[in-house]
Nucleic acid binder design. Structure first.
Lengths: 247, 247
DNA sequence: ATTATCTATAGATCTATAGATAATGC
DNA sequence: ATTATCTATAGATCTATAGATAATGC
């Protein structure tokens, strides 16, 4: 009898892969999605082929069809996550409570960080999801929830007299689109290559600093009394350092 | 393959088109670029074929190659315009002079309007231009000029004590990316269909109002004395109503 | 037997070139 | 003759299915 050398985690069976390089992380489904996400972000969905996704996940092209009916379904699986991350984040912030401006500050900063760690370009997801509403119904519903949640925080701030009188939904949409715009230039910032981009990010103080700058700018712009921004920032930092550090 | 020189009168000869529908506006080159721009924005570059571009410009697929060597060159021709419009606009604003915050206000509002009238998605252009720096050298140079111009306005404002102490380039990048983020949601805002999007735009007061909101928000966030925003807005409106109305 | 992969391939594009053709201009 | 378009098509993909195969599990 041969003694098995390694402890086997969620061991699968089936014919072994030809290519041993790549992959090896978790389950193939997730590997495929991760690889596809990276490629979609880099080359766009239309510019990415199943062969490329396969190669990037250590499989042969046809093996992808064991997990996904076609490229559209790969995209859909990715997109489902797109709103989830920010949505969960906002809920946490709202549960933690505190004044509306503080919540807003934390939401913006966390959103920038969350978006810039996404493996794909949200703006492209928007475009694609807009083109095929049938498939992406769920996406648009959750997107709506996201806008609603931010709108409510803003409305609460207005009612409390902390934020200026304004159109809350317009403000919410503007804020979210600012975050997404920021994600976009964090991706390409400063020039063509990824090296330049990360150098620029670093030069400007990193994602956290950039998100902080945007949060500062926006919240200050919304406050009735702009001079209270320092207190808001400190309160937001305080909370970040404890309850929701993991964001 | 004879490429036509930069002729001045729009000459008309050659075999007649099969399809009389569509086109007919100016020279074929511009028609192709306009059609391609629309399609690229809608479906992405990778998701657009030469057949589709041809059909949309009233030609047969192969006829496109009379004007452009390949799809990449069509894209390049479009991209060249991408920074030009905002760049020209910023120059005009700077020439018109006035306090930095007023200039900034006008730049933001005009930029949002300019971007949302572009026939393609700037964010995708960024991504594509980032992937092929060789072809898009000119694009990145002009993009850099754009960032520089805004940076200088901000620096002037800081020096004059009108704007808060901050990292001018970070602020400039943030502002430009906000404008672009706004373009993006103006495109898809509120949901899947174009009808919804324009309804949402209208419901929120139109492009001008949205740009105004963003300008208000950002400039207020940057001002040393936030209460001066009303004067800034009025000054910006005053100038808009005279010198640079055409923006 | 079940599972996860592979190889092979048809059918469907899509690109880019070659060469024909229908106008106007000389 | 020159120009702008057309038709036709080779060659290059790319997708998605069929069917084979190599593991483990029973």
């Amino acid at each position: 009898m041969v003694v098995r050398a390694e402890a086997e985690p969620p061991r699968r069976s089936g014919r072994p892969r030809r290519s041993t390089r790549e992959a090896a992380s978790g389950d193939p489904r997730s590997e495929i999605l991760a690889a596809a996400g990276r490629l979609f972000a880099e080359r766009g969905v239309g510019g990415t082929t199943m062969v490329e996704i396969a190669r990037a996940s250590g499989l042969r092209q046809s093996s992808l069809y064991y997990y996904f009916r076609n490229k559209g379904h790969v995209l859909e699986a990715i997109v489902v996550e797109a709103n989830r991350v920010p949505l969960r984040m906002i809920e946490q912030v709202r549960e933690a409570g505190g004044p509306a401006p503080v919540q807003l500050y934390r939401i913006i900063r966390a959103d920038v960080a969350a978006l810039s760690s996404l493996p794909y370009d949200l703006n492209e997801i928007h475009r694609l999801a807009g083109r095929d509403p049938e498939t992406f119904t769920r996406y648009w519903e959750e997107r709506e929830q996201l806008v609603d949640a931010v709108t409510q925080v803003i409305r609460a701030g207005i009612d409390a007299g902390e934020l200026r009188q304004m159109h809350p939904r317009l403000a919410a949409l503007t804020i979210l689109s600012n975050d997404e715009g920021t994600q976009n230039w964090l991706r390409v910032a400063g020039g063509p290559t990824a090296r330049d981009a990360s150098a620029t990010r670093a030069g400007l103080g990193g994602t956290h600093a950039i998100g902080g700058f945007l949060a500062d700018l926006v919240v200050r712009g919304l406050l009735v009394d702009a001079s209270t921004i320092d207190g808001v920032r400190q309160a937001a930092d305080g909370l970040d350092a404890t309850a929701v550090l993991d964001l």
